[in-house]
Protein backbone atom coordinates (compact mmCIF):
# COMPACT_ATOMS: atom_id res chain seq x y z
CA UNK A 1 0.00 0.00 0.00
CA UNK A 2 1.40 3.39 -1.02
CA UNK A 3 0.50 5.99 1.57
CA UNK A 4 1.00 9.75 1.20
CA UNK A 5 0.86 11.96 4.28
CA UNK A 6 0.78 15.77 4.05
CA UNK A 7 2.39 17.82 6.79
CA UNK A 8 2.91 21.53 7.40
CA UNK A 9 5.64 23.43 9.16
CA UNK A 10 3.36 25.73 11.11
CA UNK A 11 4.02 28.89 13.07
CA UNK A 12 4.31 27.98 16.76
CA UNK A 13 1.44 30.16 17.96
CA UNK A 14 2.48 29.90 21.61
CA UNK A 15 5.93 31.34 20.78
CA UNK A 16 4.66 33.98 18.35
CA UNK A 17 5.56 37.51 19.46
CA UNK A 18 3.41 40.53 18.80
CA UNK A 19 5.14 43.76 17.72
CA UNK A 20 4.49 47.18 19.28
CA UNK A 21 1.94 48.07 16.58
CA UNK A 22 -0.05 44.90 17.25
CA UNK A 23 1.22 43.00 14.20
CA UNK A 24 2.58 39.50 14.69
CA UNK A 25 6.34 39.24 14.13
CA UNK A 26 6.25 36.46 11.55
CA UNK A 27 9.76 36.96 10.16
CA UNK A 28 11.92 34.44 11.97
CA UNK A 29 9.02 33.17 14.10
CA UNK A 30 9.52 29.74 15.61
CA UNK A 31 7.92 26.87 13.72
CA UNK A 32 6.92 23.28 14.45
CA UNK A 33 5.07 20.42 12.85
CA UNK A 34 1.40 21.42 12.82
CA UNK A 35 -0.01 19.76 15.95
CA UNK A 36 -2.64 17.56 14.31
CA UNK A 37 -0.31 16.47 11.48
CA UNK A 38 1.25 14.09 13.99
CA UNK A 39 -2.06 12.21 13.98
CA UNK A 40 -1.92 12.09 10.15
CA UNK A 41 1.61 10.65 10.21
CA UNK A 42 0.62 8.17 12.93
CA UNK A 43 -2.37 6.97 10.92
CA UNK A 44 -0.15 6.50 7.87
CA UNK A 45 2.26 4.41 9.93
CA UNK A 46 -0.60 2.42 11.41
CA UNK A 47 -1.96 1.60 7.95
CA UNK A 48 1.52 0.63 6.77
CA UNK A 49 1.93 -1.71 9.74
CA UNK A 50 -1.37 -3.40 8.84
CA UNK A 51 -0.99 -3.49 5.04
CA UNK A 52 2.76 -3.17 4.30
CA UNK A 53 4.03 -0.69 1.73
CA UNK A 54 5.56 2.72 2.25
CA UNK A 55 4.71 6.07 3.80
CA UNK A 56 5.82 9.16 1.85
CA UNK A 57 5.56 12.55 3.55
CA UNK A 58 4.79 15.60 1.42
CA UNK A 59 5.29 19.18 2.51
CA UNK A 60 5.17 22.62 0.94
CA UNK A 61 7.57 24.96 2.67
CA UNK A 62 10.90 26.75 2.79
CA UNK A 63 14.24 25.29 3.83
CA UNK A 64 13.60 26.19 7.50
CA UNK A 65 10.69 23.75 7.43
CA UNK A 66 12.91 20.70 6.87
CA UNK A 67 12.91 19.89 10.57
CA UNK A 68 9.21 19.10 10.36
CA UNK A 69 9.85 16.69 7.50
CA UNK A 70 12.66 15.13 9.57
CA UNK A 71 10.30 14.72 12.50
CA UNK A 72 7.85 12.79 10.32
CA UNK A 73 10.71 10.61 9.06
CA UNK A 74 11.85 10.04 12.66
CA UNK A 75 8.34 8.91 13.55
CA UNK A 76 8.76 6.21 10.90
CA UNK A 77 7.88 7.56 7.46
CA UNK A 78 10.06 6.10 4.71
CA UNK A 79 10.89 9.17 2.64
CA UNK A 80 9.97 12.80 2.19
CA UNK A 81 9.16 15.19 -0.63
CA UNK A 82 9.71 18.90 0.01
CA UNK A 83 8.02 21.27 -2.43
CA UNK A 84 9.85 24.57 -2.00
CA UNK A 85 7.70 27.69 -1.97
CA UNK A 86 7.25 30.89 -0.02
CA UNK A 87 4.38 29.75 2.18
CA UNK A 88 3.58 33.22 3.53
CA UNK A 89 2.31 34.46 0.19
CA UNK A 90 0.18 31.52 -0.95
CA UNK A 91 -3.37 30.39 -0.28
CA UNK A 92 -4.80 26.93 0.35
CA UNK A 93 -5.59 26.20 -3.31
CA UNK A 94 -2.01 27.03 -4.32
CA UNK A 95 -0.64 24.76 -1.58
CA UNK A 96 -3.02 21.97 -2.56
CA UNK A 97 -2.12 22.35 -6.24
CA UNK A 98 1.59 21.94 -5.47
CA UNK A 99 0.97 18.95 -3.18
CA UNK A 100 -1.20 17.23 -5.79
CA UNK A 101 1.37 17.90 -8.53
CA UNK A 102 4.16 16.45 -6.37
CA UNK A 103 2.08 13.34 -5.62
CA UNK A 104 1.27 12.78 -9.29
CA UNK A 105 5.01 12.80 -10.08
CA UNK A 106 5.66 10.19 -7.39
CA UNK A 107 3.14 7.75 -8.79
CA UNK A 108 -0.29 6.69 -7.68
CA UNK A 109 -1.01 6.59 -3.97
CA UNK A 110 -3.63 4.30 -2.44
CA UNK A 111 -4.34 6.55 0.52
CA UNK A 112 -3.64 10.27 0.96
CA UNK A 113 -3.84 11.42 4.59
CA UNK A 114 -3.94 14.99 5.91
CA UNK A 115 -4.98 16.34 9.29
CA UNK A 116 -8.26 18.22 9.65
CA UNK A 117 -6.49 21.59 9.63
CA UNK A 118 -3.22 23.34 10.35
CA UNK A 119 -2.72 24.44 13.95
CA UNK A 120 -1.69 27.95 12.85
CA UNK A 121 -4.11 28.96 10.09
CA UNK A 122 -6.75 26.24 10.50
CA UNK A 123 -8.59 26.68 7.20
CA UNK A 124 -9.09 22.93 6.71
CA UNK A 125 -9.15 23.55 2.97
CA UNK A 126 -6.04 21.80 1.72
CA UNK A 127 -7.21 18.20 2.35
CA UNK A 128 -10.46 18.33 0.31
CA UNK A 129 -8.70 20.38 -2.36
CA UNK A 130 -5.94 17.75 -2.71
CA UNK A 131 -8.58 15.03 -3.01
CA UNK A 132 -10.43 17.04 -5.63
CA UNK A 133 -7.28 17.85 -7.64
CA UNK A 134 -6.20 14.18 -7.60
CA UNK A 135 -9.68 13.18 -8.77
CA UNK A 136 -10.08 10.52 -6.09
CA UNK A 137 -12.85 10.00 -3.49
CA UNK A 138 -12.43 12.18 -0.41
CA UNK A 139 -13.77 11.55 3.08
CA UNK A 140 -12.91 14.19 5.68
CA UNK A 141 -12.82 14.35 9.49
CA UNK A 142 -12.07 10.64 9.91
CA UNK A 143 -11.95 9.28 13.44
CA UNK A 144 -11.56 5.66 12.31
CA UNK A 145 -10.24 4.16 9.07
CA UNK A 146 -10.50 0.47 8.18
CA UNK A 147 -9.22 -0.89 4.89
CA UNK A 148 -9.99 -4.36 3.60
CA UNK A 149 -8.47 -4.97 0.19
CA UNK A 150 -9.84 -2.23 -2.04
CA UNK A 151 -12.71 -1.26 0.27
CA UNK A 152 -12.38 1.36 2.98
CA UNK A 153 -14.82 2.12 5.75
CA UNK A 154 -14.42 5.47 7.43
CA UNK A 155 -16.14 7.06 10.40
CA UNK A 156 -16.59 10.81 9.83
CA UNK A 157 -16.84 12.86 13.00
CA UNK A 158 -19.15 15.82 12.35
CA UNK A 159 -20.45 18.42 14.81
CA UNK A 160 -23.51 16.53 15.96
CA UNK A 161 -23.24 13.16 14.28
CA UNK A 162 -20.92 10.39 13.20
CA UNK A 163 -21.28 9.11 9.64
CA UNK A 164 -20.11 5.74 8.36
CA UNK A 165 -18.84 6.16 4.82
CA UNK A 166 -17.63 3.56 2.33
CA UNK A 167 -15.04 4.46 -0.27
CA UNK A 168 -12.86 2.52 -2.67
CA UNK A 169 -9.06 2.68 -2.65
CA UNK A 170 -7.52 5.05 -3.76
CA UNK A 171 -9.00 7.75 -1.58
CA UNK A 172 -7.98 10.87 0.34
CA UNK A 173 -8.93 11.71 3.89
CA UNK A 174 -8.37 14.13 6.74
CA UNK A 175 -8.11 12.81 10.27
CA UNK A 176 -9.29 14.32 13.55
CA UNK A 177 -7.00 14.13 16.56
CA UNK A 178 -9.17 11.56 18.35
CA UNK A 179 -8.17 8.95 15.76
CA UNK A 180 -4.93 7.89 17.48
CA UNK A 181 -2.12 8.79 19.87
CA UNK A 182 0.94 9.85 17.88
CA UNK A 183 4.16 8.03 18.79
CA UNK A 184 7.29 9.82 19.97
CA UNK A 185 10.41 9.01 17.96
CA UNK A 186 13.29 7.41 19.84
CA UNK A 187 16.77 8.92 19.82
CA UNK A 188 17.91 6.23 17.38
CA UNK A 189 14.99 6.98 15.07
CA UNK A 190 15.81 10.70 15.19
CA UNK A 191 19.41 9.95 14.19
CA UNK A 192 18.35 7.56 11.43
CA UNK A 193 15.89 10.13 10.03
CA UNK A 194 18.75 12.19 8.60
CA UNK A 195 19.72 9.25 6.39
CA UNK A 196 16.27 8.85 4.87
CA UNK A 197 15.82 10.26 1.36
CA UNK A 198 14.24 13.69 0.90
CA UNK A 199 13.47 14.84 -2.62
CA UNK A 200 13.26 18.57 -3.26
CA UNK A 201 10.96 19.93 -5.93
CA UNK A 202 10.49 23.54 -6.93
CA UNK A 203 6.84 24.49 -6.46
CA UNK A 204 6.79 26.99 -9.28
CA UNK A 205 8.31 24.43 -11.68
CA UNK A 206 5.97 21.54 -10.92
CA UNK A 207 2.85 23.75 -10.70
CA UNK A 208 3.21 27.23 -12.23
CA UNK A 209 1.04 29.77 -10.43
CA UNK A 210 0.12 31.77 -13.54
CA UNK A 211 -1.80 34.99 -12.98
CA UNK A 212 -4.10 33.60 -10.27
CA UNK A 213 -4.13 35.75 -7.13
CA UNK A 214 -6.31 33.71 -4.80
CA UNK A 215 -6.88 34.77 -1.23
CA UNK A 216 -4.61 37.61 -0.11
CA UNK A 217 -3.86 38.63 3.47
CA UNK A 218 -4.28 42.41 3.70
CA UNK A 219 -3.28 42.86 7.32
CA UNK A 220 -2.84 41.03 10.61
CA UNK A 221 -3.32 42.40 14.07
CA UNK A 222 -3.44 41.05 17.57
CA UNK A 223 -6.74 41.79 19.20
CA UNK A 224 -6.72 40.32 22.67
CA UNK A 225 -10.14 40.27 24.27
CA UNK A 226 -10.19 42.86 27.04
CA UNK A 227 -10.31 41.01 30.35
CA UNK A 228 -10.37 42.47 33.85
CA UNK A 229 -7.66 40.20 35.33
CA UNK A 230 -8.98 40.59 38.89
CA UNK A 231 -7.30 38.11 41.23
CA UNK A 232 -9.47 37.09 44.18
CA UNK A 233 -7.73 36.08 47.40
CA UNK A 234 -8.76 34.77 50.80
CA UNK A 235 -9.72 31.35 52.13
CA UNK A 236 -11.70 29.09 49.77
CA UNK A 237 -14.98 30.23 51.39
CA UNK A 238 -14.01 33.92 51.25
CA UNK A 239 -12.81 33.64 47.65
CA UNK A 240 -15.97 31.77 46.64
CA UNK A 241 -18.20 34.45 48.19
CA UNK A 242 -16.24 37.28 46.56
CA UNK A 243 -16.39 35.56 43.17
CA UNK A 244 -20.15 35.05 43.39
CA UNK A 245 -20.58 38.72 44.36
CA UNK A 246 -18.56 39.81 41.34
CA UNK A 247 -20.45 37.47 39.00
CA UNK A 248 -23.80 38.69 40.35
CA UNK A 249 -22.77 42.30 39.66
CA UNK A 250 -21.80 41.28 36.13
CA UNK A 251 -25.30 39.87 35.77
CA UNK A 252 -24.05 36.51 34.55
CA UNK A 253 -25.24 34.41 37.46
CA UNK A 254 -28.76 33.18 36.99
Amino acid sequence: MKIAVCVKHAVDEAELKIGPGGSPLLAGAAGKMSTFDKNAVEEGLRLKAAHQGEVVVFMVGGTESKKTLKEALAMGADRGVLVTADTVAIDALRTATMLAAAMKRSGRFDVVICSEGASDTYTGQVPPMVGELLGIPYVGYARKIEIDGKAAKIERSLEDSVESVEAAVPFATSVVSEINDPRYPTLIQIMQASKKPVEELNGEEIAPAGSRRGVEVLSMSSQPTARKHVMIDGSPDEAAAKLLDALSKEGVLK
Binding site: T123, G124, P128, M129, G131, L133, G140, V215
Partner: peptide
Protein backbone atom coordinates in the same frame (compact mmCIF):
# COMPACT_ATOMS: atom_id res chain seq x y z
CA UNK B 1 -18.04 26.99 8.11
CA UNK B 2 -19.38 23.69 9.41
CA UNK B 3 -17.27 20.59 8.82
CA UNK B 4 -19.40 19.63 5.78
CA UNK B 5 -19.49 23.26 4.62
CA UNK B 6 -15.69 23.53 4.67
CA UNK B 7 -15.46 20.44 2.48
CA UNK B 8 -18.06 21.68 -0.02
CA UNK B 9 -16.41 25.11 -0.24
CA UNK B 10 -12.89 23.72 -0.67
CA UNK B 11 -13.92 21.27 -3.36
CA UNK B 12 -15.97 23.91 -5.17
CA UNK B 13 -13.05 26.35 -5.15
CA UNK B 14 -10.71 23.64 -6.45
CA UNK B 15 -13.15 22.70 -9.24
CA UNK B 16 -13.50 26.33 -10.31
CA UNK B 17 -9.84 27.26 -9.68
CA UNK B 18 -10.79 30.26 -7.55
CA UNK B 19 -9.92 31.46 -4.07
CA UNK B 20 -11.74 30.40 -0.93
CA UNK B 21 -11.72 32.43 2.28
CA UNK B 22 -12.07 30.22 5.36
CA UNK B 23 -14.29 30.84 8.36
Amino acid sequence: ATRDGREVASRLAAKLGIGCMAE
